[in-house]
């Protein structure tokens, strides 16, 4: 599903922020990516959601060599990846419904299906009353739920989330982890970057730890899964 071999990454001519990262994630796995701020979690996620090319090493996504892939192939690969961005990246001029509908519309889904699926999902994340609200009128937690709904609306093969529960209260955070686990049970591979150790302990799964741009594969935090 995801394979990194000796991957290094830098922004422009800057210093290397990831060094010799090597790991493999099998289909159907659920993993956490943890580490202190500035360790390189977001950079690693950027490589995984194909927003950035590595400066060295090999990356394979869904069996395809990312380094050799052309633009069109990258676009196709991206359709199999759902991303929850740390800063949500909601489009300010679109309602919650239209933000969540974006991946479906981009994929050419019929409008009737779009409306139905998006409304159901927004109801599930507790935003049934905010379907037509613009992001500026939503709280941080509500924006985060819209971002999560947008990431999972197409049932991606790989779901990447950057601090997805950062602005949510504990019960809602727990509920969203249950959603991720549910998606994982029906086949979606999930990788969540977080520094919420209590959440990791409550919902144990294999953990990858990044420290100063170097990756360590650890046992689950807390009780064994």
């Amino acid at each position: 599903m995801v394979r990194f071999e000796n991957v290094g990454m830098r922004y422009g001519m800057g210093p290397e922020v990831l060094h010799d990262v090597t790991f493999e994630v099998q289909p159907g796995e659920f993993r956490y990516l943890v580490g202190p701020s500035g360790a390189g979690k977001t950079s690693l996620l950027r490589l995984m959601y194909l927003a950035h090319r590595p400066s060295r090493g090999l990356i394979s996504m869904f069996g395809a060599d990312v380094i050799a892939a052309g633009r069109q192939q990258l676009m196709d690969l991206r359709r199999g990846i759902g991303v929850v961005f740390q800063d949500y990246r909601l489009l300010a001029h679109l309602s919650a419904l239209d933000n969540v509908a974006l991946p479906l519309r981009v994929a050419g889904a019929k409008e009737a299906q779009v409306q139905e699926h998006v409304s159901e999902l927004l109801a599930w994340v507790g935003l049934a009353d905010h379907i037509h609200a613009l992001p500026e009128s939503l709280s941080g937690g509500q924006k985060q739920r819209v971002a999560i709904a947008r990431a999972v609306i197409t049932r991606p093969r790989l779901l990447l989330a950057d601090e997805p529960t950062g602005n949510l209260d504990e019960s809602l955070g727990q509920r969203l982890i249950r959603l991720f686990e549910e998606l994982n049970r029906i086949g979606t591979t999930v990788i969540i970057a977080t520094h919420n150790n209590s959440m990791v302990a409550r919902n144990p799964h294999p953990v990858m730890t990044l420290v100063s741009g170097e990756l360590r594969l650890d046992e689950p935090i807390g009780k064994a899964s």
């Binding site: 959601y49 194909l50 927003a51 633009r71 069109q72 676009m75 196709d76 991206r78 359709r79 991303v83 990246r89 489009l91 974006l102 991946p103 981009v106 994929a107 947008r150």
Partner: peptide
């Protein structure tokens, strides 16, 4: 540019 980058990240082709 930001909107277009996001569209690309969710799989939008250049034609779209």
């Amino acid at each position: 540019r930001n909107v277009i980058e996001l569209l690309h990240l969710i799989g939008a082709r250049d034609g779209y």
